[in-house]
C-alpha cells in the first residue's frame, strides 16, 4: 500500500493535482477509498481528512467500502427506466441475495450498482458487467450471464 500511496503523491505533485485527482487515483488503485490512505494523505499534505471525505461523499464515483469482485452496473436512465430497468435490478438483487440497504454480496463476489445514464439509450435497457456494455438486456439473459460469472470464479 505504501508504495502505491507514494506513487500517487508524486503524480499529484507533478501534475498539479487536487483532492479529486488523488481520490480518483485511490479509487483506481484500491477499488475504493481506504480510510488509512486518506489519513496518510491528510498528514502528507496537511489537509484535514474531513476535506477529503467531504469531496469523496459528494461524488458518485467514490466508494468508502470495498466492492465486489464482479461489478454489475444497471443503467437507470430515462430510456432504460421506461424499458424496464427496475425489473432487471429487482431480478439481480433477488438472485444474488444482496442484503437490503447494501450493494455487495456477503462473500464480496458481486456488487450491484445503479448509474444515472451511460448514454447508450438506443439499446436500452443497458447493463454493464465488469466494464462491458450489454444492450437490450432481459432478466433471463442476465441470469445466464450471472451463471457464467459464478462458474468463472
Amino acid at each position: 500500500m505504501q508504495e502505491t500511496l507514494q506513487r500517487i503523491l508524486e503524480e499529484y505533485r507533478q501534475n498539479e493535482g487536487n483532492l479529486i485527482t488523488i481520490l480518483q487515483s485511490l479509487e483506481a488503485a484500491f477499488g475504493y477509498i481506504p480510510e488509512d490512505a486518506v489519513n496518510w494523505f491528510s498528514e502528507q499534505l496537511d489537509i484535514p481528512p474531513a476535506k477529503f471525505f467531504g469531496v469523496a461523499t459528494f461524488y458518485a464515483q467514490f466508494h468508502l467500502k470495498p466492492r465486489g469482485r464482479n461489478i454489475i452496473t444497471a443503467c437507470c436512465g430515462t430510456a432504460c427506466h421506461v424499458k424496464g430497468a427496475e425489473r432487471i435490478i429487482n431480478s439481480l438483487t433477488r438472485e444474488l441475495q444482496i442484503p437490503s440497504g447494501e450493494d455487495t454480496t456477503e462473500d464480496k463476489e458481486f456488487t450491484v450498482e445503479k448509474v444515472n445514464c451511460v448514454g447508450a439509450c438506443s439499446i436500452a435497457p443497458v447493463v454493464i458487467i465488469n466494464k462491458e456494455v450489454h444492450g437490450k438486456m432481459t432478466p433471463e439473459r442476465l441470469m445466464k450471464e450471472l451463471k457464467r460469472l459464478k462458474k468463472g470464479k
Binding site: G17, N18, L19, I20, T21, L23, Q24, G54, V55, F58, Y59, A60, Q61, F62, N116
Partner: peptide, 23 residues
Amino acid sequence: LGAGAFVCGEETALIASIEGKRG
C-alpha cells in the same frame, strides 16, 4: 474527468469540480 455529479453540468459547479472541490 468528472467524478459523477449531475449538478456539475452547471457552470459554476463544474468550475468548482475542476478546482478539486465539491461541485
